[in-house]
Simulated scan of single mutants.
Amino acid sequence: MELRQLRYFVAIVDHGSLSRAARVLHIVQPALTQQIQQLEEELGTSLLHRSAQGMQATDAGKIFYEHALAILKQVADAKSAVNQTTDKPSGTVALGIPQSASGALAFPLLSAVRAAFPDIVFQLTEELTGNLTEQLASGRLNLAVLFDDGQLGKFTTKPLVEEEMMFITRADSQFACKRKSITLAKALQVPLILPSIQHGVRPRIEQVVRDQGLRIEHVIDITSIAILKSAILADMGATILPMSPLLPEIERGEMRATPISDVNLSRTVVLCSSKNIPLTNAAMAVEKLVLDLSRDLSLGGKWLGTTSLV
């Protein structure tokens, strides 16, 4: 198996066509086809099939595609690490962030990296927490913002903030609390609109509810934060979340956030990297920037509901 075969295969999947991939790779199509056939013979399985939509990965091909991306990224990182200097880091840095934290951190981070490190190609991806964990473990990501649920032992972790979760409704909701705070038991009597279990925030909520000897009786599972917002604004129920993903609506007065008074319902936001794959100078520079930025956002009151841990 050769690296060029991995590049060829990834290009075909990305472009959905042998002819387009051949043009991008600057090789003739028969040579490309031959290399893929050799790769499939070595692996003992078909990686691609032709459909009405073009060339697509088989089930085995989809698995191999993820591994190929991770391998190619690690090779690129290794080359970059050899050539770059600490005073002017360069290369590609891929960082993943969960949907429920991107509202507070994503745009400030993009702006900060661009200003501080113009030679770094910064790739910021927003994903479900479970997807981020897999991509970080495989090497497709250099860094990931995750939530410490006690299951991050395979990663190097650096705490960023402790983020309080609130009971959040539409401002004029029938479910809104009339007092300045609400108990967890009272909050659970309302139909709850919560992120699905793949989100890092959901297991934390479930754990606290169990620890209090309570149950979530009425819940609407929604994967998308955008759809969750729409459901709250339609007054289908309330949610229990940090303020950051709903901050624009809260600041505009469209939603109301009420503290939960009788339990410590919060999540620890951490920056993670692989214990097995060393960080490049560029990735280390971005890592330090994330730590500094999260501290400044928290202490400056721009990441509401958080306590800095940096």
Rank of each mutant, 00 (worst) to 15 (best):
P245W: 15
T280D: 00
L279V: 07
L188K: 01
E164F: 01
M255H: 07
H199T: 11
R215C: 01
Q151I: 06
P248H: 10
Q174I: 00
L279D: 01
Q189M: 09
I182N: 03
R210Q: 12
P195R: 11
L233I: 00
I240A: 02
I232A: 02
S196A: 09
T183Y: 09
I197F: 10
E251A: 13
K178S: 13
A187N: 06
S230A: 06
K186G: 00
I168G: 00
E164M: 10
S274N: 10
Q207W: 12
L247K: 15
K158T: 15
D148M: 02
E251H: 15
L271K: 06
G213V: 00
P245L: 12
P278W: 05
R202L: 08
D211K: 04
T223C: 00
E163F: 08
D262E: 14
T239V: 05
T183M: 04
L146W: 03
Q198R: 13
A171I: 01
V263L: 12
F167T: 02
S196V: 13
L184Y: 11
L152V: 11
K178N: 09
L271P: 04
K178F: 00
L241M: 14
F175H: 07
P195H: 09
R179V: 02
I205M: 13
N276D: 07
I193L: 15
P195C: 02
P245K: 13
G200E: 07
G150K: 03
E249M: 15
M243G: 05
P248W: 14
K154E: 15
L214P: 09
R256W: 11
D262S: 09
S196Q: 13
L152P: 02
E163K: 01
S230L: 01
P203R: 08
I197K: 11
A226D: 09
M243P: 05
P245R: 12
E164V: 10
K158P: 00
A187Q: 04
K275S: 06
G253W: 12
R252A: 15
L192E: 01
G213D: 12
S244D: 13
P195E: 03
F155K: 03
S173Y: 05
R170P: 00
V270R: 04
R256T: 11
T157G: 11
V190P: 02
S173N: 05
F175M: 01
D221F: 05
L160I: 09
M236Y: 10
A231H: 12
A231T: 00
A176Y: 00
M255T: 06
L146Q: 03
I225K: 03
A171Y: 12
E254Y: 15
K275W: 02
C177L: 02
R179I: 00
G200A: 14
L233T: 00
V208E: 13
D148N: 13
P242K: 10
F155T: 09
M255C: 11
T223K: 03
A238I: 06
P245S: 04
E162G: 08
I193C: 10
F175N: 05
M236G: 07
E254V: 04
R252H: 15
P203E: 12
I277R: 09
E217R: 04
L184T: 08
K180N: 08
V201G: 02
G153E: 15
A185Q: 14
L152R: 04
D149S: 06
T258Q: 12
A176K: 05
P259D: 05
